[in-house]
Design a protein around this nucleic acid. Sequence first.
DNA 1: CTGAAAGCGCTTACAG
DNA 2: CTGAAAGCGCTTACAG
Lengths: 353, 353
Amino acid sequence: MFCKRFQKFNILSVPSTKKIVKLRTVAEKAGVSIATVSRVINAHPDVKANTRLAVQNAIRVTGYRPNRVAQRLRSTTKSRKLIGLLIPDIENPFYVDIIRGIEDVAYQHGSAVVIGNFSQDQKREKMYIDLLKSEFVDGFIVAPTSSNDKYVEELIKEGWAVVCIDRGLTKTDADTVKSDNETGAYRATEHLIKLGHKRIAFISGDPSIQTTLERIQGYKTAMKKYGIEISPELIKGIHSDFASGKEITAELLALPQRPTAIFTGNNLLTLGCLETLHQQKISIPSDIALVGFDDMYWANSLNPALTAVRQQGKEIGKSAIKLLYERIEDIDKVTVNYNIKTELIVRKSCGFE
Amino acid sequence: MFCKRFQKFNILSVPSTKKIVKLRTVAEKAGVSIATVSRVINAHPDVKANTRLAVQNAIRVTGYRPNRVAQRLRSTTKSRKLIGLLIPDIENPFYVDIIRGIEDVAYQHGSAVVIGNFSQDQKREKMYIDLLKSEFVDGFIVAPTSSNDKYVEELIKEGWAVVCIDRGLTKTDADTVKSDNETGAYRATEHLIKLGHKRIAFISGDPSIQTTLERIQGYKTAMKKYGIEISPELIKGIHSDFASGKEITAELLALPQRPTAIFTGNNLLTLGCLETLHQQKISIPSDIALVGFDDMYWANSLNPALTAVRQQGKEIGKSAIKLLYERIEDIDKVTVNYNIKTELIVRKSCGFE
DNA sequence: CTGAAAGCGCTTACAG
DNA sequence: CTGAAAGCGCTTACAG
């Protein structure tokens, strides 16, 4: 058979079919049954040391690798090292940080991660949930679309191992790992207040998301604490994306009485805000001070460098997958809530204290 | 049985085991054999219309979803809609763009994507390749670590469907989708030259990567074309990351004869460069002009907005997965090479023409 | 057009 | 401690 694909490599070579070393091959090599080989692979204790050695040797010699698909189909009880990850918006680098943390731990455990990005679209979310169920993942890490995301609730009720990230669920108990949004927003607002600002705008992001509400709460608490009146016109949120940041900043600048400081609710909003500010030649921090939620990798390359609330995205990811492993191990254990602490990184976009 | 997990929801509820509607359930409901149900699911033509309707109805009523694991184990010939994705560095947002393109098309096709981020680490790459093989993915999309990445070559030789992204393979024929790096670099350099610059530095990134070499080539071609002498001290590359960008910029600035313009080889290098520039209070573009390879989402939020070579990351991803589907369909078809065009986006970091 | 049966590569009681 | 056998949920020749 002639194979175009390998012309460059060797004109006579034939496409080898995918190599298939099975349990049977190893068993024959080692002179035992496939059951015994299976036991060695699964570290079953009741195998004689000599037998184990012989099998391990046969595995090495044959280059055997278990077929994970067959393993997954056969065994219902144990974890088969496939994790489903449901991300609301892969364009938001905050989630990429989380993915990195998850992937890091998954790699240590030999788990594979199947990713589904649903772009805040419920239909798409549902499709991915169904798909991941059909793939019989061990469990799900998911950022629910809302705090009463019915698909995620259903998943939990059906008995799947689920860990929520970034956002929790109100009606159903679930392990949750998120940032301490309220404190983070509080600190950022307080920082601005201490610098003498009173007209502080908050570009909040999508107000239907719990995270947004918590950040608004933090902002308000700080304002109240320092006895500053809260003007509703200064708290604005539509979506949590770049375009909204841009647009709302323009609205804010057009206000009869301009804010002297802006606090943006996430990294995309910050970038949108910056674009408008630069376009209108507003200088930071002399004309307007700026703090952003999310301390991204580019924050220090901005001019001026951005003062920002750092969320430990990678840490959130790591905690989430560790919790998921525990949940897989014991589906009925008490649920926990992790509030990963945030940190205000003071740089130059608010001026100097 | 008491279940802590559902306390909040309903103190009496019991964890339902995962719902299992199988072929058998549907078959009984429809009064046919499981073989017939299977045929309907797989859109086999030889099913009587009435039967098909009855089965489809039973599927709907029972809420049946095929077990993809069993499907994958059983059927060797057809695509089972699981794609393996091997990414060298998920921290580089360029790859995130690619992932988005891939995910977009995968979603349309009902494919799941298993992701492996190997952080430029060959051992990790190997582990993920083995893992994805064991999962019997339909095919791989991979950015090889180098142009003679032996693991990827092996994969192809073994008969797996593989599409390379961002970087090609020299010794083995493979479908490849990448940016037209040389032209992109050429245009950026030419832009600087036309603005009157002669001492143009190029912070190239990791010189062991093919992509880097192509960009260096583009830079050199432009310099020669316009009769400008190439000073080796102005072409520097270590790694393709933030730290290198920062470091090399500092070296460049310390040169007896400073460059008047810098061209950075990727988005991470650009950010590193910017940090050093801002720290040293070098003003852009009046002290130094800057062009970056990669036009990221933050480019327009910089001050000044960055002139950059846009790579169509999302487009690369889309083309790659489409090619992969074709390759899965026909493993022996002639390989193709796509050079996705780049575009110079002129903004303000080089001054005005 | 449809069904009975074999089998994908494993795991896991069960028996010895 | 080990093996023979059943079976996970499907697909696919084969026979009718």
